[in-house]
Design a protein around this nucleic acid. Structure first.
Length: 595
DNA sequence: AATACAATGATGGGGTTT
DNA sequence: AAACCCCATCATTGTATT
């Protein structure tokens, strides 16, 4: 396995854990069904013969825009009592069965944007809020939520509830205005549903606003998030120990890493997930609870592959990858990059004190440690000789880990340089240098990027499949981690449609494209939200479909370092995930049609 | 020299898992 | 309890433009 001599690499590896089983061959999307297996059997008969006794329930889901047929099916499967499971099933049906040919290029987290063949409407991920709303007002009387909710005026509570169900504040406000302030949630959703079905939104709502913009409501996002947290807790308590939430594997090696025997060589993908096209989605592994469940549910119930790039290079990078790629015949890029700090940054060895036991760097982020910090540390160390006392050592090590500092002189620590970022992440030297990009922007772009060796290892399975090269749709391309990975794998890039909002990043990729003498075509677009079915069909018509769709959507609102707006998947930037899904689903449909 | 804007520097918490 | 984290904001400094 690990050919490297330094034994410290194994420190965190728990070889005989059983966790690794969790991410693998578990039958996909079984949780919804198996969890309520007994309910299905028990209630199925009664429901099918007599229909739902609770017509209120039916009405309610109708009001949300789901078709009667689907609702009955969902109630059959889940029983009448478990409204949450019903909604979950409805969402799943909608996500899997919709023909989204004519989905608008806007966010799917708002039911307004859903156009389904059967009039079904997707709601957002906020299934738990629905339960609260059905069980009416006393759900607000919990002592915990009281502090949060009590600070809100009554009408804002209602707006918040609706927002949590995926409606925009505009929709919610319009509904309240029409139905009156005393209207129940059910009435309001009925109104909105009717408005949507009539497709006369514009009469009621000025213009489609894809995001749940709480600015208008005067609510702080912070409160929304706290409320979410509380509800999740509450749900856990109510349904006692739901263990269908994804858990992170340990060790985080996915289906295997080059230095390790492949733990799994085969998996069964859900039917709906199978290509063409192949797809590859990436985001941070340590997202708020429930985020990966949602991502997985949207991406055809494919279980994420969680991998830490510390098994590929000298820096940690814990990421989840949802993809439908083959997982046999993987191979790494050569030469294998250095996998310890020592090997990656040999000049630091001379100054590395024996009491700093680190062999791997932590995750390379978008910002670096300050000069003042390293100055403080130097002064603290200079007071002592070669052997500082334990409490000083502890302080220094703590700051080193927090800021990824390395030793560059006696008592002298420093953050990594941008070119060291490039090297550790597997990019060619000076990939992000020059051409008008600032130093801080380099850090930002690199910190947001793929680790090339890791991604290349996963994509390597495609080399045999596409010996003549591929057509690539690259969303949220950034500095082109996927493109670089494919190029280094020797997979020719025929046509690349690359969507990236940052001009600086587009410049970097274009410059790389020219410097590496690419033979194919590079088409750059700026905004995923502008990429609609017409554009896609145009591209796909000209070169015959995409072979691979890669993308890592923004993690701003998921990342742990964000202390201000860690709002989850519905956050301002991170909700662009739904555009990844939208575009992927569009491409799938178009390709099916063309066959 | 005054101004506008871009780049940099410093600071600050908490959710989650082990 | 400890460790970790593709960060946002604002004050300050640097640079270009008038």
């Amino acid at each position: 396995m690990d050919g490297n001599a330094s034994g410290e690499d194994y420190e965190n590896i728990d070889w005989d854990t059983e966790d690794e089983l969790e991410i693998q061959n578990i039958a996909p999307s079984s949780s919804l069904v198996t969890r309520n297996a007994e309910v299905i059997v028990g209630n199925g008969e009664a429901s099918s013969s007599a229909g739902p006794s609770n017509s209120n329930l039916l009405q309610h889901f109708l009001g949300m825009g789901f078709s009667e047929q689907l609702i009955v099916k969902a109630i059959k499967e889940n029983g009448e009592t478990n409204t949450e499971s019903i909604l979950e099933s409805l969402l799943t049906y909608a996500a899997l069965e919709d023909s989204p040919d004519e989905l608008n290029p806007c966010h799917l987290n708002s039911p307004q944007q859903q156009q389904c063949v059967d009039n079904g409407q997707l709601s957002s991920d906020y299934d738990e809020s629905f339960l609260d709303d059905l069980s009416e007002s006393d759900s607000w009387s919990g002592s915990e939520v009281a502090e949060i909710a009590s600070s809100l005026p009554e009408h804002e509570k209602v707006l918040l509830s609706l927002a949590n169900m995926g409606y925009t504040v505009e929709e919610a406000s319009a509904a309240v205005a029409r139905c009156g302030p005393e209207a129940s949630i059910a009435e309001l959703t009925d109104f909105i549903g009717a408005a949507q079905m009539a497709k006369t939104e514009d009469v009621f709502f000025e213009e489609e606003k894809p995001k749940i913009s709480l600015a208008n409501g005067g609510l702080k996002k912070r409160k929304l998030y706290e409320l979410e947290m509380w509800k999740r807790k509450k749900r856990k308590g109510m349904l006692n120990e739901e263990d269908d939430v994804l858990r992170l594997p340990n060790p985080m090696i996915g289906f295997g890493v080059p230095t390790d025997a492949m733990v799994v060589t085969h998996r069964t993908l859900p039917e709906a997930a199978i290509g063409p096209p192949f797809f590859y989605y990436e985001n941070v592994a340590l997202a708020p609870k429930g985020v990966w469940d949602t991502i997985s549910r949207f991406l055809y119930d494919v279980q994420p592959e969680f991998v830490d790039s510390k098994y590929f290079c000298a820096a940690a990078r814990k990421r989840g990858y949802v993809h439908n790629l083959p997982i046999h015949n993987r191979f790494p890029l050569l030469p294998l990059p250095p996998r310890t700090i020592n090997d990656a940054l040999p000049l630091t060895k001379r100054w590395w004190p024996e009491w700093d036991k680190r062999t791997k760097l932590n995750c390379l982020q978008t910002v670096i440690g300050s000069a003042r910090l390293t100055d403080r540390i130097r002064k603290a160390l200079e007071k002592w000789g070669d052997d500082p006392p334990l409490h000083v050592q502890k302080y220094v090590i703590e700051e080193c880990r927090k800021w990824n500092l390395v030793w560059v002189g006696k008592n002298k620590l420093a953050p990594l340089e941008p070119d060291e970022f490039e090297m550790l992440l597997g990019f060619p030297r000076n990939h992000t240098r020059g051409g008008g990009i600032s130093r801080t922007d380099r850090y930002k772009s690199l910190g947001n990027s793929f680790q090339v060796d890791t991604v290349a290892y996963h994509l390597s399975a495609l080399k045999d499949v596409f010996p003549n090269g591929i057509n690539l749709l690259s969303l949220f391309s950034g500095i082109g981690g996927a493109e670089v990975a494919l190029h280094r794998l020797g997979i020719p890039l025929k046509n690349v449609v690359s969507v990236e909002i940052s001009e600086a990043n587009r410049d970097i990729v274009r410059s790389w494209w020219e410097q590496t003498n690419q033979k194919g075509n590079l088409i750059h677009l700026a905004d995923v939200q502008q990429l609609n079915g017409d554009r896609l069909e145009q591209f796909m018509g000209s070169f015959g479909g995409f072979d691979l769709i890669v993308g890592g959507s923004p993690c701003n609102n998921l990342a742990g370092s964000n202390r201000v707006s860690r709002d989850g998947l519905e956050g301002e930037q991170s909700s662009l995930f739904y555009d990844y899904f939208r575009i992927l689903d569009l491409v799938k449909c178009i390709m099916n049609k063309q066959q």
